[in-house]
């Protein structure tokens, strides 16, 4: 690229984003979230393969069959994957960095076949392993959102 006669320092243009979107949950997710407000977790079971899906969705991707059979799921399950996250990243919802460290895990709730990606209370990697029994710790004031479950704690 040909530079001009005057060399300037590389400049930039700041464009701060502050946008809001209105997301429609759809019927299945609405029922699921309404359940959370009563500490009730439900999955959708596929009539084809029998897989019990969380989150709820309209269709089983493997069988390509509609899902409408609700089955109850426990607020406790098995830790299927874990990590302790230590990198402070910007939370796009707040514009602020998320405090670290925090535990993360994939939890297979009793009665479901997929796993939930969620937070763990435990942040000591020495105390975490696949197969641990964990249970949901609920928020005091339930709002009908996935973070009504604050995190999962190891069941002792």
């Amino acid at each position: 690229m040909t530079a001009g006669a005057i060399a300037a320092e590389p400049l930039g243009v700041a464009c701060p984003m502050d946008l809001g979107w209105r997301y429609a949950s759809g019927a299945a997710m609405e029922r699921f979230l309404a359940g959370l407000r009563e500490r009730r977790i439900e999955a959708l079971r596929c009539d084809g393969c029998g897989r019990r899906y969380l989150p709820p969705r309209p269709l089983c991707g493997d069988c390509r069959l509609p899902l409408d059979r609700w089955v109850p799921v426990a607020a406790a399950g098995t830790l299927e994957a874990w990590s302790v996250y230590r990198l402070p990243i910007l939370d796009g919802r707040t514009g602020e960095p998320r405090p670290t460290p925090y535990g993360i895990g994939l939890v297979r709730l009793d009665g479901a076949d997929t796993t939930i990606n969620h937070l763990l209370a435990e942040t000591d990697p020495g105390r975490l392993r696949i197969g641990l029994r964990v249970r949901a710790v609920w928020r005091e004031e339930l709002r009908g959102a996935l973070d009504d479950i604050l995190h999962f704690e190891v069941a002792r």
Binding site: P16, D18, Y23, A24, E30
Partner: peptide, 8 residues
């Protein structure tokens, strides 16, 4: 159900 999500 509609949920508002803000991104900054």
């Amino acid at each position: 159900m509609i949920v508002e999500g803000r991104v900054q």
